[in-house]
């Protein structure tokens, strides 16, 4: 048992996960995190603009100076500014790949025949992810995990820290996707054990049941969708 530490008590109701929408196919739950946060993107863009706007011209200037007059005096600035240039390049590649992923593929969604889930029951789940543009160029595989874990949040000084502890991790069967597909579909079955811990969604202390579906599309994207599902007693 973890050492008990009494922190500030918050009078808050339960913080429930997103509820699925009832559709003709069943209960549809969309991955709430599409990996694209507008505020973070704008902040990152501004940061990159300033960083690259300053470091790249300076790096180019010292490179020209080194080429014109190679010496120890001119190589040291090159070595120093190369670090900043590399960071700028890495940032641009990261921003570009994030945008490319959003451009090429939509967020994932799962479809369940019934919701919420109950102890001791098995459920067939369909995962679906559509491509916005084009089709897959190479065969790929989709993997998934059915994870039960504890999640807590607390303050450490001025920082908000989270900690997790996995209670159980079940690797689900892989599924192959052929080239030429414009939609990734993954069918699987998850079982909630009879004595499984039930979902708890307090604001700072949670027991979560999560379906994690990982896709790796060559030359396109590598991404994981997370779906938190509610488990109730049978």
């Amino acid at each position: 048992m973890a050492k008990i530490k009494l922190n500030k008590i918050n009078q808050n109701p339960l913080r429930r996960p997103l509820q699925p929408q009832k559709t003709a196919e069943g209960y549809c739950l969309v991955d709430p995190n599409d990996g694209f946060n507008l505020f973070i993107f704008i902040f990152g863009l501004l940061w990159l603009a300033i960083w690259c706007g300053v470091s790249f011209p300076m790096f180019a200037f010292v490179i020209i100076a080194f080429i014109q007059q190679p010496s120890l005096e001119t190589i040291l600035p090159v070595a120093f500014l190369s670090i900043f240039a590399v960071i700028g390049v890495v940032g641009l590649v990261w921003a570009g790949s994030s945008l490319y992923r959003v451009y090429r593929i939509k967020v994932g969604e799962v479809i369940l025949s019934t919701y919420p889930l109950y102890q001791g029951q098995s459920y067939r789940i369909k995962y679906r992810r559509k491509l916005r543009q084009g089709r897959t160029t190479k065969p790929t595989t989709i993997t998934a995990q059915w994870v039960n874990y504890e999640w807590v949040e607390y303050r450490r000084g001025t920082d908000t820290v989270t900690a997790t502890h996995e209670i159980s991790v079940i690797d689900l069967p892989e599924q192959s996707i052929m080239a030429g597909a414009n939609e990734l579909t993954y069918m699987t079955q998850v079982t909630v054990p009879e004595n499984a811990p039930l979902s708890i969604y307090a604001p700072h202390n949670q027991v979560r049941w999560e379906l994690r579906v990982k896709i790796q599309l060559p030359y396109m994207t590598r991404d994981t969708s997370f779906f938190v599902l509610q488990v109730l007693p049978s």
Partner: peptide, 12 residues
Amino acid sequence: FTEGRGTGDRQT
């Protein structure tokens, strides 16, 4: 109520 590493939650 909760006790442990996380910030305590409590509800009446």
